[in-house]
Design a protein around this nucleic acid. Sequence first.
DNA 1: TGGTATCTTGATATATTCTTGATGACTTTA
DNA 2: TAAAGTCATCAAGAATATATCAAGATACCA
Lengths: 235, 235
Amino acid sequence: MNNETNSANPPRILVVDDEAAIRRFLQTVLSSGDFCVQQAENGHLALAAAAAFRPDLILLDLGLPDMDGVEVIKRLREWSKVPIIVLSVREREDDKVKALDAGADDYLTKPFGIGELLARIRVALRRAVQQAPAPIYKIDDLEVDLVHRRIVAGGREVQLTPTEYDLLRLLVTHAGKVLTHRQILRQIWGAGYVEQPHVLRVNISNLRHKIEKDSSRPRYILTEAGVGYRLKADF
Amino acid sequence: MNNETNSANPPRILVVDDEAAIRRFLQTVLSSGDFCVQQAENGHLALAAAAAFRPDLILLDLGLPDMDGVEVIKRLREWSKVPIIVLSVREREDDKVKALDAGADDYLTKPFGIGELLARIRVALRRAVQQAPAPIYKIDDLEVDLVHRRIVAGGREVQLTPTEYDLLRLLVTHAGKVLTHRQILRQIWGAGYVEQPHVLRVNISNLRHKIEKDSSRPRYILTEAGVGYRLKADF
DNA sequence: TGGTATCTTGATATATTCTTGATGACTTTA
DNA sequence: TAAAGTCATCAAGAATATATCAAGATACCA
């Protein structure tokens, strides 16, 4: 996993909101606070912009026209750890909990004070200075692009089923680390499957046939007998 | 054989508030949420408790009798990065900004919902876990990474069987101490095996062949004749 | 509704790990 | 020195874990 940091001053902030007035307002406030601001007006544009623009922080309104805000957070969290601050008019506690549990870092209810917003942004940035792993995992002949959900093995793109993709993503995001059968089963199939490693084995086998040159001698997905599986890492 | 993976202890939370009613309330709420709770009723006790108790998270009321809450945050931040969530009755934006800039991670205004509080706690803990570096035991040429379940000896990674790994983990977590045969057998094979040191010897032998340069002259796993084994410690 | 892709489950061959017994080296003690 | 105990190692069969194929079940889409 290449580890490129993208923290050149000033910090870049992506503002996601469907109301142009609010985007303009935040643009003004943040620009004068020495931030570089990019805007997106719906969920799909936000995901694309997050991948292309690589912001250091995302301000996200939950009420987007094209997709649910919580879904946007989940999709972002599939590959990125960028701090997300939710700005919402909704006051319901349930929305906050869902957004925070989906991976948001903070939640502000409109209307909010500018001073507080800037302070929350400082907190999030203070914490995040360190790391920003590239969302493309590349090792030898295997390329996994978590943003575009694209897998290339041996020079050709391979199609994975949803389960296979989830499995590979889990391995990629923990590259180098041994994941026990139970950990994988709980993550992908749910707590009720932790005692059924068979379904996992079948999927590992299928995945290997799609991404390994010689599936009987795997180079990427390594078996840790009696324990679980581990994706080869480049260290 | 008990082959159970290590499950983390319940996160420890330090509650700092001068009102006993609120401490009791939080104690109840948090304990049922599977947290281990410690209390402090003023700033000085909070600082002492943070040092002694080493909580994973601090819930801090700003209105303390003996010192300003912001001062408590600053003093904590002189040596600790423990997540701090401020709980305050004050609504003034200025207080929030000061607390956040002093090093607090989040700020909730009373009254707050329990669901939201728990969600904010999960966010703070989630982040703290991510940032904690993996502890690696390193003795001369032997490297044991218990998080990644990765063993490197003599510069190359070695594959251990589950039993061998459990055995090495036991030795590593008690590095420098002599573990009797009975202690090891009870831990790894169960109480029924304490009279059968043979299995242990075979596994020690196999382990040595994998991690020692010259297994007939072990440098790491030392035999304490008539007693047990001891892993060399780097002191 | 039919057709397709995916998921689940069973059967079975292969591979790994565990246990156990045999053997010899070494140490301690009589 | 002999005898007894402890320790290290090897190797083979037993037990367990893993990989794979394929059929039936299910979900999804046009």
